[in-house]
Design a protein around this nucleic acid. Sequence first.
RNA 1: GCCCGGGUGGCGAAAUGGCAGACGCAACGGACUUAAAAUCCGUUGGCCGAAAGGCCGUGAGGGUUCGAUUCCCUCCCCGGGCACCA
Length: 842
Amino acid sequence: MNEKYPFSEIEAKWQTFWRDQGLFETDVEKASRKFYCLMMFPYPSAALHVGHGRNYIIGDAVARYKKMCGFETLTPMGWDAFGLPAENAAIKTGTHPRATTLNNIATMKRQLARWGICYDWRREVTACLPDYYRWTQWFFLQFYRSGLAYKSHAPVNWCPSCNAVLANEQVIDGQCWRCETQVTEKKLDQWFFRITRYAQRLLDDLDQLPGWPERVKTMQRNWIGRSEGAQVEFRLVPRADGQPDPHPAITCYTTRVDTIFGCTYMVVAPEYEALPALVKGLPEAPAVAAFTEKSGRLTAIERSGDTLEKNGVFTGRKVINPYTGETIPLWVGDYVLTGYGTGAVMAVPAHDTRDWAFARKYHLPIRLSIQNPEQNLVLETLKEAWTEDGVLVNSAHFSGQTSVEARASMARFAEEKGFGKATVNFRLRDWLISRQRYWGAPIPIVYCPDCGIVPVPEKDLPVLLPDDVEFRPTGESPLKRCDAFMNTPCPKCGKPARRESDTMDTFVDSSWYFLRYLNARDDQQAVNTKLCDRWLPVDQYIGGIEHAILHLLYARFFTKAIHDLGLIHFNEPFAHLFTQGMICKRSEKDGQLYKMSKSKGNVVSPDELISDYGADTVRLYTLFIGPPERDAEWNDQGIEGASRFLRRLWRRVCETHPNLDAAQGIACDPQAMDDIERNLHRRIHETICHVTESMDSDFHFNTAIAFIMELVNALDGFPLAADRPQRGAVYREAIETVVLLLSPFAPHVAEELWMELGHPAGSILKTSWPQHDPTALVRSRVEIVIQVNGKVRGRLEVDAGLSQEALREIALAEPTVQKFIEGKTVRKAIVVPDKLINIAVG
RNA sequence: GCCCGGGUGGCGAAAUGGCAGACGCAACGGACUUAAAAUCCGUUGGCCGAAAGGCCGUGAGGGUUCGAUUCCCUCCCCGGGCACCA
């Protein structure tokens, strides 16, 4: 055995061994105790850095642990390979996106292997290859057929830098999620997925995901934004000039129908569709037109946020409050959003802060209709709106009801009288999936002058993305300029027709890839129902928090939609989700901490580190850096610690090789042990206990590794004695345990040491994970802490299991304790058996 | 504004009602060496003290408790989510 830890030799050797033995290739047909361990598949952008590594190292550790626990583990990997960066690079350099992408994939695959991260590569999926996107297109067709995909002319988010539209989920603070450019609004014909049809189920089923972080579920709940309220129709007072209206009433949505007796005016959004017709020919019409035109110039971003001053004008029209029969004015105001509810709100200034501000500005009447519990709200002295629930006042026969009672009874009343009803509203909007870019899956639709929108027949899939396309961005889809692609006979009538020129959002590709791993090479069907039903939901999904809404919401939607197509029989794709924190690094320029990324120029490449220290060291440090769910700062010096530890362990095995060999086959017998041996034996089992627990719960491998380090430290100066076989046996047990417990984190060195310990056949992965022996944890002597008034004044070693009385006696007799209780009365002594005594004196 | 995290040595952090700072980094002192690296031994929260020892200390203030980093209340700071959603 080489004294100097020869990591590069070892690592190359075992990586080859794992690959040649197919240790990570899973027979999905016959697995009985299955474990599906999935990591979010990456976008193949250039090369991986150590920040990416965290995700895969955690996943690899979990997979290896589960294998040793006897699970048949499925760990596949693939590539989210469509997307803008490759296309943008192509525009700059002229290299085709396919070439860059496939190149990057090869690099990243090599990097993963050098890291010792193993996958079942026979199941690799690559989203940009026709054998994958063919089925992405197939799902589009199924969605189209079931009404889940539809085309609509709508105002959409436009990123002028990406030259493409964005879904709502992809706009962060008014900026493009990818390039942080300010998003503008455009009205375009676009394809949507009707995710709103699943809003309620997407919300409800979150409760069936106890294995998800609460934080992610909360974010999804907020995003879906369900609210319960009522729709109420306010009839329009007919026009004086006798002109007809497009509809006789304006419907508003409110969550506070209990306040409606305090409603003193109504407001519609500037974009309210019937507004021009409602005011046509009235003296107010020009002012209304001027106002809507002006607010239309503001972007959606400028209009959102409560900082903007609320503006509005009177429309000249009046409506009737159906509860009071009262006539109130109809205004148009820029604080009303067109996309939410009905685009019209009833205004109750006394009980809504926004209505309050608007009414004060335009001197509209304010009326109290809710009283607070103290009964001290007085209109004349009201300084701001009272927006909490209370008891109804000035509300006819509803007066005296609580807000909660009134919301139910008043909705019922509206329904009986026929002017309204209780309704539910969602904030979630449909998912816009068209992209005016080249490097994506073509939308399988043909436009025929005679037949209109015609879906491409399934037998004609895939609609191949042509290679030879000028993809310089013009704001129009590049495919439009490719006649060979665009011109196609209508699948229905055969006459010349044109293809859809947009491609699909890449989030569509990633919404179903976890199903495809089960039958990645199957060219007959998109998914294999039987295998999916057996292997999914995914047992453990691991990825970044940045997908809390985006990918994780879309994937849940796809799963439900595919379930409803009858292709799978589960409703949720991921049973347990773990979101790891980002690896950050201080910028050399400004000293600030940033997420490690190429654009920030603070990436650390694994390649050089692995060459210098070895993959096991890099893995160990990455896991040791801190609790995995939290962000962490990468510190190049920190890696020294991990390196020292592995070298120390290596040397220890080397130097005590004869002792270890001699102890082989000698069983650990606690009955035959002396105190030294029993203490080490206990430590061994405490360590097993702790490491196993972190494996099964929160993945806090930082403390798991610390425990293993402590066990190794405990071996320093351990007195090996030739005449005591149990010495060697316990020592050997310690080393074997360290190697086994370390193997998910530092697999190469673990394999090598395991072999050195005399297990020549096969892999440590085939060995069982160690079990702790509860009897080994029992101590016969314990250290008792003695406190006086909560302050530590001494400690004592005593036999375990002494009675409270006995411990009290012993403690009070201690000279150091005497000093602190002298001349004082002992009021109380709290005894925590085998742990602590606190004497309260005064 | 609402909701969720977080705030502990020089640094990454540990402890979830019972010894604050495990484990690691860095620093310092020592051993080995011609020297350096590597390795090994030791010190390392602050203040007082020659030492024994004492006092203080987990963002701030208050509370509950024999005992609080941990539970409760108020506030401050940092990060994230939602936000004119009626």
